[in-house]
Simulated assay, not measured.
Amino acid sequence: MSKSKTGAVLSGLLLLAACGSESDRSAPNKADNAAAAAAAPSSRSVSETELKTAVLENLRARHGLQCGTIDLPDTAIKTVELTGGGNPELAVSLNKMNCGAGQNNFSGSPGGVMQFWTRDYGGANMLLEQQMYGFTPGERELVTMQHGGECPPTPQTDSCRVTYRWNEEAKILAEAERILESKLPERQRMAYDYDLRDRAEQRKAYLDSMPKERRTVPAP
Rank of each mutant, 00 (worst) to 15 (best):
S2C: 08
K3P: 05
K5C: 04
G7S: 12
G7V: 07
A8T: 13
V9I: 15
S11I: 11
S11V: 08
S11K: 12
L13A: 13
L14M: 14
L16H: 02
L16F: 14
G20L: 11
S21I: 12
S21C: 14
E22N: 10
E22V: 15
E22G: 10
S26T: 11
N29Q: 09
K30D: 15
D32F: 06
D32K: 10
N33C: 08
N33I: 14
A38D: 11
A39D: 12
P41N: 07
S43V: 00
S45V: 12
S45H: 09
S47Q: 01
T49H: 04
K52A: 10
K52R: 12
A54W: 03
L56D: 01
N58Y: 08
R60L: 02
R60W: 01
R60D: 05
R60V: 01
R60A: 03
G64R: 05
L65K: 15
Q66Y: 03
Q66N: 09
I70T: 02
I70E: 03
D71V: 04
L72C: 05
P73T: 13
P73H: 03
D74E: 14
A76P: 04
V80S: 09
V80E: 02
G84V: 08
G84W: 03
N87S: 15
N87C: 01
A91P: 02
A91S: 10
V92A: 11
K96M: 11
M97F: 02
N98Y: 11
C99N: 10
C99Q: 06
Q103C: 00
G108H: 02
G108E: 04
P110N: 08
G111P: 03
G112D: 00
G112V: 07
M114T: 02
F116K: 01
W117R: 02
T118C: 04
T118M: 01
R119M: 10
L127D: 07
L127S: 04
Q130E: 15
Q131M: 15
Y133K: 09
Y133Q: 11
T136K: 06
E139W: 09
R140A: 15
R140Q: 15
E141H: 13
E141M: 15
Q146F: 03
H147A: 15
G149M: 07
E150S: 13
P153R: 05
P155W: 07
T157P: 00
D158Q: 11
S159E: 09
C160I: 06
Y164A: 03
Y164W: 10
Y164E: 04
E169I: 08
A174C: 00
A174H: 00
A174D: 12
R178L: 08
I179Y: 01
L180R: 15
E181Y: 05
S182M: 06
L184I: 15
P185M: 08
P185Y: 05
R187F: 10
R187W: 07
R187S: 13
Q188C: 00
Q188I: 14
A191D: 13
Y192W: 12
D193C: 06
D193P: 04
D195G: 11
L196H: 04
L196P: 03
L196I: 05
Q202W: 07
R203H: 05
K204Y: 06
A205M: 09
L207P: 01
D208K: 10
P211L: 04
K212N: 07
R214H: 06
R214A: 08
P220R: 05
P220I: 08
